[in-house]
Computed example of a mutant assay.
Amino acid sequence: MAPAWTPCRSGGVGDVWQAERVPPARRAPSRASARPSGGLSWEEVGLAPVVLVAGAEGVLADRAVDRLVSLARAADAAVEVTRPDAAEYTTGMLGVVTSPSLFAEDRVVVVDGLERAGDELLADALAYLDAPPADAVLVLRHGGGQRGKKLLDAIRASGAPVVACDVVKSDADKSAFVVAELRRAGRRADAQAVRALVDAVGSDLRELASACAQLVADTSGLIGPDVVERYYGGRIEASGFRVADAAVAGQAGQAVALLRHAMATGVDPVPIVAALALKLRTMAKVAAVRGRGAGALRELGLAPWQTDRAVADLRRWTPEGLASAFAAVAQADAEVKGEGRDPQFAVERAVLRVAQAAGL
């Protein structure tokens, strides 16, 4: 059970904590925000004496911290914000930065890099959990790993809010992130535009957020694939996913041309092979269950556009062709990761073999 936090004085952050102990009904978070660990999304977290921001997705962690600081400043414009670094912590520092000041301002203390914390910080933070002051917000940011596990477990057991900032890896979650970014800005994009944007800049969530912000600032109305093409067309054409799409379609010439352009612009062979492998795995999953109906396809956990695209791609593929393509990609994967002398040659050969296998 969470401690029964009580406000220390009217108008401060303590009153906000008391008001937020019974959360209002809210819409379900987007797929990119909902986390299997059971934590809150950065959009949901509210003020509390102790808040844990856990996970390696930096853009989500930054937003959680910024939101908490903004909420504290909305409650008390004179709130004092302190940001000690976990690696530079010395014994007793936590008590100093959270103790009442001469003018009794509320305080927000953001400790970054808890995964790098020494024993002094971990011990002080554990002791702090027993009786946190009501007019301070302590935000502990942990980037992942096992360091400080005892403290993390204690924070969760105390009932303190935990913001889950897990790395967003799948294309479906990245697409959901784009949709949520645009929705917050009062904008929408059609499904093709969302996929095109993920294909172009989806390797890094911070870059994807920046791309959304640029499209919102520079365009109006519904964002379509033509708009994304205008801003990020070169990157889309050079992406591993476009190479994979052309290869799976049996378009050997186009696939090789896209591949050479991608590598000429600095794209590493490894993610291109990974894109080929992902494309083939998706097709194999869909091929294995498509005869069992729509329900079985939904159980795969793929986005609808991924399933539709795989079904369309499979019309030109045989089981023998898929087996041959998998063998070519497996060989390329080993060679681009150190077993071959020429990674670029290895990936180009794999692209050609996949394109040829489409006609087997």
Rank of each mutant, 00 (worst) to 15 (best):
L40V: 04
A125M: 08
A2M: 14
P84F: 02
L52R: 04
S41I: 03
R9P: 02
A61C: 12
E105P: 01
I223S: 09
A346R: 11
V270Y: 03
S101I: 01
L197G: 11
V162G: 09
G253W: 08
A154R: 08
L60C: 07
A74W: 00
A34M: 06
S210W: 01
Q192P: 02
G359T: 10
D85C: 05
G224F: 00
V270M: 01
V51F: 08
L205N: 02
R183G: 14
R63H: 04
D226N: 03
H142S: 06
A75C: 00
L151F: 10
G143I: 03
L280H: 06
A303N: 02
P3K: 13
Y89V: 08
R235C: 05
F241I: 11
T282A: 07
G39V: 11
E339Y: 12
V194K: 03
G11C: 15
Y232E: 07
G186M: 12
T282F: 02
L114Y: 08
V354M: 05
C165R: 12
D62C: 01
P23Q: 10
P133S: 07
R31C: 00
M93N: 09
M283D: 07
R31S: 10
E299W: 03
A64M: 06
A334C: 10
P271D: 13
L152A: 02
G224N: 04
V243A: 12
P100S: 11
A117D: 04
G233H: 11
A262T: 10
P3Q: 10
E115N: 03
F326P: 11
A217C: 04
E44S: 05
E105N: 12
V227M: 07
P36G: 13
V289Y: 09
A87C: 05
P161D: 09
A160T: 14
A180K: 05
V267H: 06
A328M: 12
V194R: 04
A325E: 02
E335D: 15
A34W: 08
P24L: 05
Q306K: 08
F103P: 03
A288G: 12
L276V: 13
V50S: 12
A209S: 15
L259T: 13
V228Y: 09
G295V: 07
S10T: 15
A136Q: 02
K150E: 10
L114V: 09
V65K: 00
T98A: 11
E44D: 08
V289G: 04
V351G: 13
A75K: 00
A196C: 13
T91F: 11
R83I: 05
L71M: 02
V167K: 13
A185L: 15
M1D: 11
